[in-house]
Amino acid sequence: MPRRDDIQRILILGSGPIVIGQAAEFDYSGVQACKVLKEEGYEVILVNSNPATIMTDPEFADATYVEPLLPGPVAQVIEKERPDALLPTLGGQTALNLARTLHEDGTLERFGVELIGANYDAIGRAEDRDLFGQTMERAGLRMPRSAIATTVEEAEDAADEIGLPAIIRPAFTLGGRGGGIARTREELRTIVARGLDASPIDQVLLDQSVLGWGEFELEVMRDRNDNCVVVCSIENIDPMGVHTGDSVTVAPQQTLTDRLYQRLRDQAFQVIRAVGWRPAGRTCSSRSTRKPRRSSSSR
């Protein structure tokens, strides 16, 4: 991939504190990005609210701001530092949502800052569950049955189609904060109400339950020339239903045959291409599940 010489100063948004759903891999990839970009001769400006990460040690960036990862403070940094580009793909959900806001409120345009790694639309396709579902459908990839709801009543209607148990997740909170698994109508109402509260856009996603299925993740990377590589494959030892934040995982995956693994790899590339990340060093996590062959409760 050719080096871009039309940009000099790059703003990186960190991921803030390590939490479930936004774990240390984002911090790690952010640190790596700072190193690589500096090695390549770019000036790196960093905003991260987490003073405990090695990322905010002074030598990792040309200018480091330990400030809240909120639109106001970051806009001030942009105004002062005047970066050419904003790289939002290395700070997890926090950075992606922040970049979206800075685009929507006109900050990026006002100061002529280009979003690199993923543009506004691509962030939307990856982070908005409805858009993501449509994108996957167009790419020919199968997903668990799902629906979007913005009220408890809508969610109850949707559950008639999807069935219970159903997984409920608020939109725009990657770690699933405010979500849960509803096994009964009553649980459904409670969890949906909580999820709508937690979602910054008052939206929840209901998914067909894949409880008990095997869970695999692929970290994949794509460059501007559309070359894709798998950074690593990951297998969750605990089945679907144990939250990823609690689940023991092992890398690389251990139990898929070569043919199944290669199919999963092909699909992960379909996902990253369909979403349209054209990143400079973005890892995109793609998840897949496998139904246990000897499951007695298969539908």
Partner: peptide, 14 residues
């Protein structure tokens, strides 16, 4: 024309 590697996978990437 020729290819040194294995486009057929089995095992390996597709």
């Amino acid at each position: 024309g020729t290819i040194q590697y294995h486009p057929e996978a089995g095992p390996g990437p597709n």
